[in-house]
Structure formats: structure tokens, C-alpha cells
């Protein structure tokens, strides 16, 4: 459907065009902007949903693999050496950050093991924070779209109905056939708003729960790892 056709079909008769495109084309500029904005929001929100879903499944698989390797009895030094060179995420990032701090403490000239345990905890916290932030980034966009796009759509509807009634008042014709197209195109804005909002709200709740679950898993691993490291530190001090 090219614009020339649309312009031809939309201009002559007001009530004739009832297709989706016709409804959009006849709408007031404000309503058009609202519709376009809502469609953009919907595209964005679905992009986030897809990305996050993929990210979460990737990171869950990575955590599974890492835990398997970590508890397989492999030497931590070897593991660190294999992971240190490439960018890591999730549990691997947490592990690498703690191990780096550990190594720096022993490799330096002065062995600063006194507050090593505290420093490792700090590093772990910061890394977890960073990882969770990465997981949860853009989830707020979903929440915002879910909460606000119905209102935006409603605004478009109210504006469209307002315009429609002004036209009725101007043309002094109140038959339903005259009123109906304007109201239909106005309601179209609310429909798009809901179309964007419903998946956003559902996905936000789901992804938020997933992120919380992964954060808890990371913290659990960090606590265990920190326990292992502090035991090593104590052993070395004693030795």
C-alpha cells in the first residue's frame, strides 16, 4: 500500500476507510505520533525481552558449566590461568576478580595478607554488583513501558475522540456512521498501547525474578569461594 493510494482513498470519504492503515492515516497528528511512539516502544520492549531472555539463558548455562568445572577438583591456579585472559562474565568474572586480588597480595614484594580476606570480600561484592547490574540493565525500560503505554494510548484515544466530537459539532451530523470511524481510530491508539504494555509487564516480572535468582546464585558462590580463600589464607599464615 503506497502513500499515493492511501492519500487517494483516505481523502474523499471520511467514513469509508476502515482498514488498519486507513484508521492510522485519518487520525489526528497527535494521535499519529502517539501511535508511532507506542509502536516504537513495543519494538524496543520486545527487543529487550528477546535480548534478556537470551542473556539469561546464556548466563545460566555458563554458571552451570563453571560450577561443574570449579567443583571438579581442578586446581584453582589452573582454572584462573585458563580464564584470566578472556573476558568472563557471571561466576567466572567473580572468580577471576577474587583470584586476581589473591595473587596480587602474594606476588607483591610485601606480603599483605593481614586484611586479605576483607579485601577479597569487597572485590567479590563489587563484581557481583556489576554482574547483576548487567543482568538487570534495561529491565526498568520494560517496567516503564508496561506502566505508561496504556496511559499514552488512552491519551491518544481521548484526543482522537475529542477531535471526532469536534468534527461532529462542526458538521452537525450525529449519526453513528459519522461518529464511528473517528472513534474506531481513536480506540486504535489504546489498542496499540495495550499491545505494547501487556508483554512488557509480563516480561518484566518474569525477567526480574530470573535476575534475582541469578543474583542469589552468584552470592552463594561468592560466599563459598570466600570461605575457601579465607581458609587458605589462615593456613598460609599459620605455615
Amino acid at each position: 500500500m503506497n502513500p499515493a493510494d492511501v492519500a487517494q482513498s483516505a481523502l474523499p470519504a471520511v467514513g469509508s476507510e476502515i482498514s488498519l492503515w486507513g484508521m492510522f492515516w485519518q487520525a489526528h497528528l497527535v494521535v499519529k505520533l502517539v501511535m508511532l511512539g507506542l509502536i516504537g516502544a513495543s519494538v524496543w520492549c520486545w527487543a529487550i525481552i528477546i535480548d534478556k531472555t537470551l542473556l539469561f539463558s546464556r548466563s545460566r548455562r555458563a554458571m552451570d558449566r563453571f560450577e561443574e568445572v570449579f567443583w571438579s577438583g581442578q586446581s584453582l591456579e589452573e582454572l584462573y590461568r585458563s580464564l584470566a585472559n578472556r573476558p568472563a562474565s557471571g561466576m567466572a568474572a567473580v572468580f577471576v576478580a577474587a583470584m586476581r586480588e589473591w595473587k596480587r597480595s602474594f606476588e607483591g614484594a610485601g606480603r599483605s595478607v593481614a586484611s586479605l580476606s576483607q579485601r577479597i570480600d569487597k572485590v567479590l561484592d563489587v563484581t557481583i554488583q556489576r554482574e547483576v547490574e548487567r543482568l538487570e540493565s534495561k529491565l526498568l525500560v520494560l517496567a516503564t513501558i508496561g506502566a505508561s503505554s496504556p496511559f499514552i494510548g488512552l491519551f491518544g484515544t481521548v484526543w482522537g475522540i475529542m477531535t471526532s466530537f469536534r468534527s461532529i459539532a462542526a458538521s452537525k451530523n450525529t449519526s453513528l456512521a459519522v461518529v464511528a470511524p473517528g472513534i474506531a481510530e481513536a480506540l486504535f491508539a489504546t489498542a496499540i498501547g495495550l499491545f505494547a504494555a501487556i508483554p512488557a509487564v509480563i516480561a518484566y516480572n518474569k525477567l526480574q525474578a530470573d535476575a534475582a535468582k541469578q543474583q542469589a546464585r552468584l552470592e552463594g558462590f561468592a560466599d563459598e569461594f570466600s570461605a575457601i580463600l579465607s581458609r587458605q589464607i589462615d593456613e598460609r599464615i599459620a605455615a
Partner: peptide, 24 residues
Amino acid sequence: QEPGLVVSGIGHAAILVAGLVAFA
């Protein structure tokens, strides 16, 4: 890593076309 935007854009375009056909 993040194909979301493209996939979403294609999906919306498909829905729009389907809507144009269905609500013709």
C-alpha cells in the same frame, strides 16, 4: 549476542502486515 532489536523489528513488521491484511 543481542539480536533482540532486529528480531523484534521484523516481528512487528510482520504483525503490522498481517493486521493490514486481516483488518482490510
